[in-house]
């Protein structure tokens, strides 16, 4: 197995690594001049004036649709800053924000946002966009819920599911995401105690513990119902045997908010840039971009602008920031 040879190991390993590192370095230099080297502490050499960095934690449904990468370049140009976005799910995003690891938070879980503000972690809580969740299921619709009020539909699925009616199942995200929070809010509005009346009441209720795309695939494979954001559904539609059955209902509304992390808690926070980003989101031109996003790819916008009267009606704050 081990060849008995007298050449020296250290030079061999050294040559190997030098070659590999050299190769990587050369590739880095020729391939992508600006990103080729690994910065150890500061992001990149500052050529003209200090370039800021805004670290953003966001929910997957907002980032994975591509909206933020669509809005990012104009902001970066205007404010001479890099926007670094990490999309990790609402629970994780909020945890990062509480630890001071990011400067700004973009999420969609009103109840947890209020708690976050009450605990003093954030300032400048503003709503900037909304859309609607939809309830999807097999075209055969075994529980006959198409067009029902969401609360009534959930009640019917649960009743039929517990009864053991053949072909009735519901797949839940089960991962503490914003979508999972919305699902629990609907169960509550339908008059059920989530942990007692819904969870573990039978094989009909499946907790996936996965992202939206994987949950949709699971629902499709099992011929089950599920709650989803429209963007992910449209992105996966081609691979799914699921049809939108309920698209109307106040409770399905999904409002996205931005929060600047409180700079008093973490002194090095980039609060100025974070506030500038919120101001940017609330601008008319940005709102028009939000409303147009997705039309070319899906034939319809994935998000609606959120300003003025709508904002008041939703109980949100969309007012301009002081001094913004």
């Amino acid at each position: 197995m081990i060849p008995m040879d007298t050449t020296r190991f250290v030079p061999v390993a050294g040559v190997a690594f030098t070659l590999l590192l050299l190769g990587a370095w050369i590739a880095g230099c020729t391939g992508t001049p600006s990103e080729g080297t690994i910065p150890l502490t500061s992001p990149r050499p500052m050529a003209e004036g200090p370039r800021g960095t805004l670290l953003m934690a966001t929910t997957t449904s907002l980032y994975d649709t591509g909206l933020l990468d669509f809005l990012r370049p104009d902001f970066e140009k205007e404010f001479n800053a890099d926007v670094r976005i990490t999309s990790q799910g609402t629970g994780k995003a909020m945890e990062l924000a509480k630890r001071g690891d990011v400067d700004i938070l973009l999420v969609h879980d009103p109840a947890r946002e209020i708690a976050f503000m009450d605990e003093g972690y954030g300032i400048n809580h503003r709503c900037f966009a909304y859309n609607y969740f939809i309830i999807v299921g097999p075209a055969s619709d075994p529980a006959v819920i198409a067009g029902m009020k969401p609360e009534d539909a959930f009640r019917k699925i649960l009743t039929e599911g517990i009864k053991g009616t053949a072909g009735i199942a519901f797949v839940s995200r089960g991962d503490g995401s914003g979508t999972h929070a919305k699902e629990q809010a609907i169960w509550k509005a339908a008059g059920f105690n989530y942990t007692v009346d819904v969870q573990k009441t039978g094989a009909w209720y499946i907790e996936a513990g996965k992202g939206m795309g994987e949950t949709l695939v699971m629902a499709s494979e099992k011929g089950a119902y599920t709650l989803t954001d429209e963007g992910t559904y449209l992105a996966f539609k081609g691979n799914l045997q699921l049809t939108p059955l309920i698209e109307q209902g106040e409770i399905l509304r999904n409002v996205y908010s931005a929060i600047t992390i409180n700079p008093d808690r973490f002194p090095n926070q980039n609060a100025t840039l974070a506030n500038q980003f919120i101001t940017y989101l609330l601008r008319d031109t940005t709102q028009q971009k939000i409303a147009s996003f997705g039309k070319d790819r899906y034939g319809k916008g994935l998000f609606s602008a959120l300003q003025g009267a709508d904002c008041v009606r939703f109980g949100c704050d969309c007012t301009a920031l002081a001094g913004g």
Binding site: F17, L20, L21, A24, W25, A27, G28, G31, T32, E35, G36, T37, I38
Partner: peptide
């Protein structure tokens, strides 16, 4: 790919 290679090799 270059970034992946740099990080893993280092």
């Amino acid at each position: 790919s270059v970034r992946t290679l740099e990080i893993s090799l280092l």
